[in-house]
Design a protein around this nucleic acid. Structure first.
Lengths: 341, 341
DNA sequence: TTGTAGGCGTTATCAA
DNA sequence: TTGATAACGCCTACAA
């Protein structure tokens, strides 16, 4: 297959361009471009020639050039604190899938849990000229807010709720989740409740929601163990151990995630304590295993998939000028009672 | 802040360009570009002027333009069958981290488990002109191989092993994993072994590795339950149930993943069977929970993090002309004996 | 150490 | 329905 390169760079086999295709098809580059991007503006026969020429040359469009000229990168930046987190990962996958359907590619960035790093990462990623940004949470550094606002990019914040998002939002109220869990535990009659909690901000809001309601119900001085991120089964075990060995009487523990809850249950069983007979365990997240664990784990279910789908859809719609009705979407949550409580 | 736009587009506030920065700094665009990309070629005072002008204009480089001109996109395409898989997700995170350190961004694509879709996705992503590609596994469609080979891009295949990779590779031998597991189980004296296995290709190779050795040891007609992807705790439970109810005598089960193993253990306990007393359980992957489960789960550990780190490093090195010694890196694996066997 | 000229591969725009 | 022309914003190569 002879390379039909222009004279100048006879050496390096550069990948074929629109011009190469046009030459081969006996058309102008513009017509080929049109055939690719607006086929309905091109005669069927021409389309056919273009198809043939593309196949023959092995042409692959250059979206760097295309994006530069059209000012449409078809790129969405997605920023999450970490990928290897059971809660986020389903959302990311949903985002990726739906964005692909809509013709966008996903640039995935990991920000860790500090606002400064998030700001650095987003400002770096803006040089790719993404057409939209997905941010996790509603807490961002002032610098990041400024950059994003002045960029006028569509932004979706996910996994939290506020009446005043940067732009759009899909999430739920962590405080209300906490309230609901606490109310439920009180109604079940638990009197000596302990907490095993990770240290991130959203979890802290859920904790506040829990404590507020417990206090309303005259339950004070709630023993609480704080464990570092990431939430892991081992920390659920050590958390319960600490709680029990602190000398408090405990008839129930509320955990900031199902993973911790699973750890607590395993530790309880290991010590010969029955769940929920001797000690009840409540989780959060409704992870895959919670339903099928033994005992099955009471928890709060978040539609993680929907968060991703909605975020991608809202973004794509806004980019394409289809203004959707709601800029703030509360997807709610559902408390699921199972065997562990 | 007056916009110093050129006359033509007085309307839309376009984001500032190198030229805007240059004007403000009283320099040429080229010098500003140099200050950004090769600061050591620029006088300190000039550098300072540039910094000031960038801050004042709020300049954000345009990597679409930069990439087009320099033919360096600083983009790496990463293709995995699914993100929400406990095995891949750590590797992806490691990839993302290390690539960021090296100055690359990650374009993450989900291919599912079919070769055709993988080929479609990669050929689409090539239009972003990535400088390297990470592919999961060593099975690819002929079309994809052709495209990749003719693109002359650095490619790293991960999570499997072959003496003849497309380009570079970091992984391990699934067959040898299977061999080792089977040998171990035989040495422990288990005679009535059942299998609970998912259906993906790499798992199938491990299964073959297991069966080969079992047959060598005169263990034939191994009862085996096949479960659909994704591996989930529930399928471990139902898998064991099927195995037990099929009428076979079972003193041990080997599972294609720790998640299935955990499910099997839970099901066993649920039925009043002791693990490993009545039935031993072997997993694969050494997931987070395996060590802290009760009983702790015997498994094979893969350094998932290292796969990502190495893949990113090999790619970056190759792109930057630092040829590394080994194009094929076998990271091996480690059988970890724990309580469940 | 800095600047000039030209081109990277595509698309918007307008003309034919 | 197709084509010519001029950007898009930056960098390579070379000149000063």
């Amino acid at each position: 297959m002879m390379a039909k390169n222009t004279q100048k760079n006879a050496g390096k086999a550069k990948s074929p361009t629109l011009e190469d295709v046009a030459l081969r098809a006996g058309l102008s580059p513009m017509t080929v471009s049109r055939a690719l991007n607006n086929p309905h503006l091109v005669r069927a026969l021409t389309l056919e020639k273009v198809r043939e020429a593309i196949a023959a040359t092995g042409y692959i469009p250059n979206l760097l050039a295309g994006g530069l000229a059209s000012r449409r990168s078809k790129l969405i930046a997605v920023v999450v604190p970490q990928i290897n987190n059971n809660m986020f990962v389903d959302t990311v996958q949903a985002l990726s899938d739906r964005l692909a359907e809509r013709g966008y590619h996903m640039l995935l960035c990991v920000s860790g849990y500090t606002e400064e790093r998030e700001a650095d990462i987003v400002s770096a990623i803006l040089s790719r000229r993404p057409e939209g940004v997905v941010l996790t949470g509603i807490q961002h550094s002032p610098r990041l807010k400024r950059i994003l606002l002045s960029s006028e990019l569509p932004v979706v914040e996910i996994w939290d709720l506020t009446p005043t998002p940067l732009d759009m939002l899909v999430g739920f109220s962590h405080e209300r989740v906490g309230n609901k869990i606490a109310r439920y535990m009180c109604e079940k009659g638990y009197k000596n409740i302990g907490l095993i909690w990770t240290e991130d901000k959203r979890a802290a809001v859920r904790k506040k929601g829990v404590l507020d309601v417990l206090h309303e119900n005259k339950l004070d001085a709630i023993p609480s163990v704080s464990v570092p991120l990431p939430a892991a089964l081992s920390k659920g075990r050590s958390g319960l151990r600490q709680l029990l060995e602190s000398g408090h009487q405990i008839d129930a523990v509320i955990c900031s995630s199902d993973t911790l809850a699973q750890g607590a249950i395993i530790e309880a069983n290991h010590r010969g304590l029955k769940v929920p007979g001797d000690i009840a365990v409540m989780g959060f997240g409704d992870l895959d295993f919670s339903q099928h664990h033994s005992p099955s784990i009471s928890t709060v279910k978040i539609d993680r998939w929907r968060v991703g789908i909605d975020a991608a859809t809202m973004l794509a719609d806004k980019i394409e000028g289809k203004e959707s009705i709601d800029a703030v979407r509360d997807i709610g949550f559902e408390l699921i009672e199972r065997e562990s409580t």
